[in-house]
Computed example of a mutant assay.
Amino acid sequence: MTLITMENVSESLRGECTRFLLEIKAGVFLGSISASVRTLLWQKVKENVREGGAVLAYSYPNEQGFVLEMYGDPRRKVIDIDGLNLIETRL
């Protein structure tokens, strides 16, 4: 399972994501895609996000059962502490 959320991005980028994932709410995309498609789609998101931000979450066989990646929001980032993904927020 793959989840991508985006804020303040172009309609064309959102449209590109709907080619592979279901937009369940504005800027929230969900679906089952292969790892290679996920990698290519995430690269496209990062190249076109501009002033906005994006979060990628996907199933992975670790303690939490998923991996998180963030792009574009300098106030938040994913940090790994002993194999756990946590969100670090800077004020």
Rank of each mutant, 00 (worst) to 15 (best):
residue 31 G to A: 09
residue 51 E to T: 06
residue 48 N to H: 13
residue 10 S to E: 03
residue 37 V to P: 08
residue 59 S to V: 06
residue 74 P to W: 09
residue 19 R to S: 04
residue 57 A to H: 11
residue 42 W to P: 00
residue 29 F to Y: 06
residue 2 T to K: 01
residue 56 L to E: 01
residue 73 D to H: 03
residue 16 E to C: 07
residue 35 A to C: 10
residue 39 T to D: 05
residue 59 S to D: 09
residue 34 S to W: 02
residue 10 S to V: 00
residue 33 I to N: 00
residue 2 T to W: 00
residue 90 R to N: 07
residue 60 Y to G: 00
residue 25 K to D: 11
residue 44 K to S: 12
residue 91 L to R: 05
residue 21 L to Y: 08
residue 11 E to K: 09
residue 6 M to P: 09
residue 88 E to M: 11
residue 67 V to R: 08
residue 82 D to T: 03
residue 15 G to P: 15
residue 17 C to P: 01
residue 29 F to P: 05
residue 58 Y to I: 02
residue 66 F to Y: 14
residue 33 I to Y: 04
residue 56 L to V: 07
residue 70 M to F: 14
residue 15 G to C: 12
residue 38 R to M: 07
residue 45 V to G: 01
residue 34 S to A: 04
residue 12 S to H: 14
residue 83 G to P: 11
residue 66 F to C: 13
residue 22 L to W: 13
residue 55 V to K: 03
residue 46 K to A: 09
residue 31 G to E: 13
residue 81 I to R: 11
residue 88 E to G: 13
residue 67 V to D: 02
residue 13 L to Q: 11
residue 5 T to K: 06
residue 77 K to V: 02
residue 79 I to E: 10
residue 69 E to D: 01
residue 24 I to M: 15
residue 36 S to P: 05
residue 72 G to L: 13
residue 11 E to Q: 10
residue 72 G to H: 08
residue 79 I to H: 14
residue 84 L to Y: 09
residue 29 F to S: 00
residue 55 V to R: 01
residue 48 N to R: 12
residue 34 S to H: 08
residue 71 Y to C: 11
residue 52 G to H: 07
residue 21 L to A: 05
residue 50 R to D: 06
residue 51 E to Y: 10
residue 42 W to Y: 09
residue 90 R to Q: 12
